[in-house]
Write a protein that binds this DNA or RNA. Structure first.
Length: 275
DNA sequence: CGAACGACCTGCAGGC
DNA sequence: TGCCTGCAGGTCGTTC
């Protein structure tokens, strides 16, 4: 489910409802997500209140007095806000119940998500090596160009590496490369500065447009209020294999790169030097 | 060191 | 209808 726009949509949905709320209790129904949920949370968190709600890459961060709750939605995770006594369903693994009765509930069928706690989240092993946020000025063509020299990995793999830049997953990598007219297999180290300028612009444009539409709902993404995202209507290559390219009308092709489906236009995204 | 790949887990679509 | 296979938005840890 979630790439950066979906996580950002989730954050914007929950933030106004959880900020400054006092935690009443924490219910863990299924503690084995990607990593075990710390069993100290139900003891540690009650009585504390949410001071800030933010995002780093695809990690949601809820800060309380003694530290920060770190939430990752994995492939199929979703947070929703519910009213008091809302009965849990099959994949509702964690509830954070507030004193006013509201419930912040994590639902995650595939359990690739995570709920962790850290007194200094940015020093946490999962967060400390993350690359820049794609929508900030730190993420620019000079940075990508320098970072990519001598790298032989496909440019698609390169921009999906969270140590290079956070938040670009399979959908938005495909869309951004199409927008920048770059072949996904082009070696990252051989992409020119000019091409990176176009790619950076494309990534920012695509992510911003998706956030505006509430993210992409393929099959199961819903925001914290249960609404779908409408960016799927704007996807130009992802999931359109065999359908005509919106620019040249040739059929969209597909490759597997690192075992991930990679849709692209054979004509518009021609490679200069694929090895 | 970087790169490739398996692993985690469930649900669903499609083929037989 | 039902079983089997492959695939899915992520990304860490292991192996080469």
């Amino acid at each position: 489910m979630p790439e950066l726009p979906e996580v950002e949509t989730t954050l914007r949905g929950i933030a106004p409802h959880v900020l400054h709320q006092t935690i009443h209790s924490v219910i863990i129904r299924h503690p084995t997500l990607r990593w075990p949920i710390p069993n100290s949370l139900p003891v540690l968190l009650p009585g504390q209140h949410i001071q800030t709600a933010s995002r780093r890459g695809k990690y949601l961060l809820l800060a309380v007095q003694t530290g920060t709750i770190i939430i990752h939605l994995g492939m199929s995770g979703r947070l929703s806000l519910l009213k008091k006594n809302s009965s849990p369903k099959k994949h509702d693994h964690v509830d954070i119940v507030f004193e006013n009765g509201d419930i912040l509930r994590l639902t995650d069928p595939r359990r690739f998500g995570a709920v962790l706690f850290s007194s200094s989240p940015f020093a946490h092993p999962l967060l400390k090596n993350l690359g820049p946020e794609p929508l900030t000025a730190d993420f620019n063509a000079d940075y990508l160009f320098k970072k990519s020299r001598q790298k032989k990995v496909p440019v698609k793999t390169f921009i999906m590496n969270s140590q290079v830049v956070v938040g670009v997953g399979n959908i938005y990598a495909a869309e951004s490369l199409f927008s920048a007219k770059l072949h996904p297999l082009q070696a990252a180290g051989e992409v020119s500065l000019i091409q990176y300028q176009l790619l950076v612009k494309s990534i920012k444009k695509v992510l911003n447009a998706s956030i505006k539409q509430g993210g992409t709902t393929l099959k199961d993404f819903l925001d914290s209020e249960g609404n779908k995202g409408y960016f799927i209507l704007k996807l130009k290559v992802y999931g359109r294999e065999g359908e005509p390219c919106v620019t040249c009308f040739n059929p969209i092709a597909s490759l597997r790169i690192n075992n991930r489906a990679s849709a692209y236009c054979l004509h518009c995204q021609s490679a200069c030097s694929i090895k």
